[in-house]
Design a protein around this nucleic acid. Structure first.
Lengths: 199, 199
DNA sequence: GCAAGGATTGAACCACCGTTCAATCCTTGG
DNA sequence: CCAAGGATTGAACGGTGGTTCAATCCTTGC
């Protein structure tokens, strides 16, 4: 046994894996999921098509991880922005602004993550994405209900509906590439009313 | 020229076309879009695969029409239910109840119409579907704003967000096959608050 | 430098499914 | 009953793109 995987090799493998994910993300941001053939991802990552399969058993597995990574990044950014605020109203405003601001910054990626047709296996990951948002928001809503800032309500249902409203309202602007001047403020007002933020 | 298409033939052709659409709908309701190969649709409609192409140039065209038909039926049902009511609050309640009631009645079909991964060309038809709901609802909202029943707001934005909230809140229950006892009332309360229905 | 064995390559493979088309069947007017 | 020509059939085609694998390259420990 003259060959035993060493640290250096492990590091290189790990780097390859990361490069694959990064390449997939870049292609998604440029050409959407539709442009993400395994061959294209491999080429951009600087390795052969077959090598991708050393790291991921199937394309769906690869993109499940890509979606997970990208989603986590988005949710984290939103959570970070919301954490800077105090009070439900302000936090929710931060959520909407951060979410829509980032989406409009990379509309192709946002579309891919939110709505583009993908493999069912990858689609499942999308549910996780939306669920993560919903859970984040449900926490704020629950706090608001507890503090009396909001009227009694099911925080999870409200959060889920809120995520749906947010996503749906962004689909049009994402397709157009820009949002109207009043879209974001209008959406915030809608959502504040929906949660029962007192005026 | 001994052969000239006669009424009887035209009727038979038209009947075939209808059978194809009906077969596609039935398969969608049973196995989702994923189960809808052209061969399967043809078999259920009682004709050969190739004959489908006498009626529709491509599969995408066929399913665009299938989606259009099914969507129209749904929107009509919702509009009919809403028309029986007076006042925005009641109409919106009817919308939510009818929409979710029908969706839960045929969850597989509802999932296909709302969220299942499909060809981009068919996906476009889905946008039309959601747009139709939004426009219906925007009309009620505009009336409500005009009559003073609702506070000032962009009816189209509110309606779009409302449709998103409704669809998102239904995805979970659709996957589960049933909605919790409080889901529909909770959703109606959320939406009433969002529109600014006075309590 | 060498043998062992994992990593890498990329062209070939293959499954799936939408689509086509030559053969056949049916309908029509005479 | 016949000929013309559209309708129907369903097996075969073909394009796409995910997946595989025999050949080759590298890395490791001695």
């Amino acid at each position: 046994m003259a060959y035993r995987s060493t640290e250096r090799v492990k590091a290189r493998l790990s780097a390859s894996r990361q490069r694959i994910i990064a390449a997939a993300l870049e292609i998604m941001a440029a050409h959407g999921y539709a442009g993400c053939s395994v061959a294209a991802v491999a080429e951009r990552a600087g390795l052969a098509t077959g090598s991708v399969y050393r790291h991921f058993p199937t394309k769906a597995d690869l993109f499940a991880e890509v979606f997970r990574t990208a989603s986590q990044r988005e949710v984290d950014a939103v959570a970070r922005a919301a954490a800077l605020e105090t009070g439900v109203a302000e936090r929710v405003s931060a959520v909407v602004e951060t979410f829509s601001g980032r989406a409009l910054q990379s509309p192709r990626l946002a579309y891919a993550l939110l709505a583009e047709p993908v493999d069912p296996a990858v689609d499942a990951e999308r549910l996780v994405f939306r669920r993560a948002y919903a859970e984040l928001i449900a926490g704020y809503v629950a706090e608001g209900v507890a503090s009396g800032e909001l009227p009694p309500q099911d925080p999870d249902l409200s959060a889920t509906a809120l995520v749906g409203a947010l996503a749906e309202a962004m689909v049009g602007p994402l397709a157009a590439g820009v949002a109207g001047r009043d879209t974001i403020p209008g959406l915030i007002a809608f959502i504040h009313r929906a949660l029962g933020v007192s005026p």
